[in-house]
Amino acid sequence: MTRVTGDWINSPAAQAVCRAIAQAGHQVFFVGGCVRNDLLGAPISDLDLSTDARPDQVMQIAEGAGLRAVPTGIEHGTVTVVADGEGLEVTTYRKDVETDGRRAVVAFSDNLEDDAHRRDFTMNALYAAPDGHIVDPLGGGLDDLNARRVRFIDDAGDRIREDYLRTLRLFRFHAWYGDPEKGIDEDGLAGVAANLAGLESLSHERVGTEMVKLLAAPNPAASIAAMVHTGVLGLVLPASDATNLPILIHLEEDRTPDPIRRLAALGGVDVAERLRLSKRDQKRLDVIRRGMASVTPAAELAYRHGADVATDVALLRAAQMGVSPETGAWVEIEKGAKATFPVRAADLSSKFTGPALGAELRRLETLWIASGFELKREDLLT
C-alpha cells in the first residue's frame, strides 16, 4: 500500500490537529499539494486537511483541544487551526452546487468522493490518512501521478467551465509535474480549445499569478508552446512571441528560473497591466525591455541598474540572436556592477552651476564609462 513518509506528516502540529478531529469521531485526511509533492519528491509548503466535520464543529474541536482556530474562509468551509505555531487549513468536504466559471456555490458533504470530484486534476485528488496511507477515491489518480500525466477529473470541458482559470492551471501543472516527452493530455487540450472565450472573464490578478508560477517552472517551454498552439497565449498576452523562450531557457543553464526575465522574452503589449504585476516587477520588466532594445553595453547596464538586470539583458540579447552571450560578458558585468563614479558635484562647483553642472557631470561620466571605468578622478578633472 502506497503511503507518504515525509517528516511533515509526523510533525507535532499536523498530528495534533488530526488527533483532535479524529478523536471527536470525524474523518480527516491530508489532501492536495502536500500529498502530491511528497509522492513526487518535490518541496512541500502548505498543509491542507479535509474532513467531514462542519466548520463550526472544527472550531469547537480545535478550541476544546487547546488549539487556536481562525475562521479564515468559514463561509466556504475553511478554518485555519494553529498548533505549535503552525497553521493548517482544515476544509469540510464540499460539492459544487452552482458555478459561473470564476467562483462556485458549494454545499457541505459527508462523502469523500464528493470532495474529490470537485477538484481539478486527478493528481490533486489524492488523500493521505494521518498515518500516511494514500486514499485514491476516484481511482486512477495515483497512476496518473506516477506517469506524470496531468489529467482533468471526469470531463475536461466541465471542469474548465467550473473555473476558467483551470485552463492556465493545466499548462502550469504540466510545466511543473508533467512528463515533457508525453505532451499535454489531448482531452485537456480539447477542453481548453472549446472554452477559450471563458478566459476573458478572469481577473488580471488571477491570470498574472498563474503566468508567473508557470514561468517559474524549470522548463516551461513545452507548456508555452502548447499555449501558443491552442490560442491561449495570444489571448493572455496579445502580440507575444514564444520563439526565443526555449533558447533563453537553454542559455540560462544552472541559473534560478526567473519569470520576469522569461516574460521579457515573450514580449507582448500591456503586459504589466494584463498580468497585474507588482510595481517592483513592473519596473524591472520595463528596465529589462528597454535594455534589450538599446545598444548599451552590458557593463554600463550593470553600473546603472545592477548585475541582475545586466545579466538578464545579456541573456535575452543572446537568445534573440540565437547565440551564446559574448565571451567575457559576465566579467564585464561584474566590473560594471562594482564601479563607482569618482567625481562628485562638489568637485566641479567652483567652475559650474545649475544645468551646466549637471551637463558636465554627465559628460565626465560618459568619458569614464567609455574608458571601461578606468579613468581616475584626477584624470577626469584635468
Results as ranks from 00 to 15, higher is better:
235 L>G: 06
219 N>E: 10
214 L>N: 03
143 D>L: 14
245 L>A: 04
234 G>C: 10
242 A>P: 10
213 K>W: 11
177 Y>T: 07
246 P>N: 05
220 P>D: 04
176 W>K: 10
159 R>A: 11
166 R>V: 08
264 A>I: 08
194 A>Y: 11
149 R>A: 02
267 G>P: 06
224 I>E: 00
252 E>K: 10
230 T>Y: 02
258 D>E: 07
143 D>P: 13
241 D>W: 13
247 I>V: 15
148 R>W: 12
156 A>F: 00
147 A>H: 15
150 V>R: 00
260 I>H: 03
233 L>S: 00
226 A>D: 04
163 D>F: 03
245 L>C: 06
243 T>F: 09
207 V>M: 01
199 L>I: 01
244 N>K: 07
267 G>L: 10
233 L>N: 01
156 A>L: 02
186 E>Q: 14
150 V>N: 01
168 L>C: 01
140 G>Q: 05
263 L>G: 00
216 A>I: 12
149 R>I: 07
154 D>T: 13
254 D>A: 10
202 L>Q: 04
263 L>W: 04
242 A>H: 08
250 H>R: 15
228 V>W: 03
253 E>T: 15
246 P>C: 09
175 A>E: 05
203 S>Q: 14
204 H>S: 14
228 V>K: 08
206 R>A: 15
215 L>N: 01
182 K>V: 14
224 I>C: 03
199 L>W: 03
221 A>V: 13
220 P>T: 10
155 D>G: 12
203 S>M: 11
253 E>P: 13
157 G>Q: 02
172 R>W: 05
158 D>I: 10
149 R>T: 07
256 T>A: 14
198 G>N: 05
227 M>L: 12
250 H>S: 15
175 A>T: 02
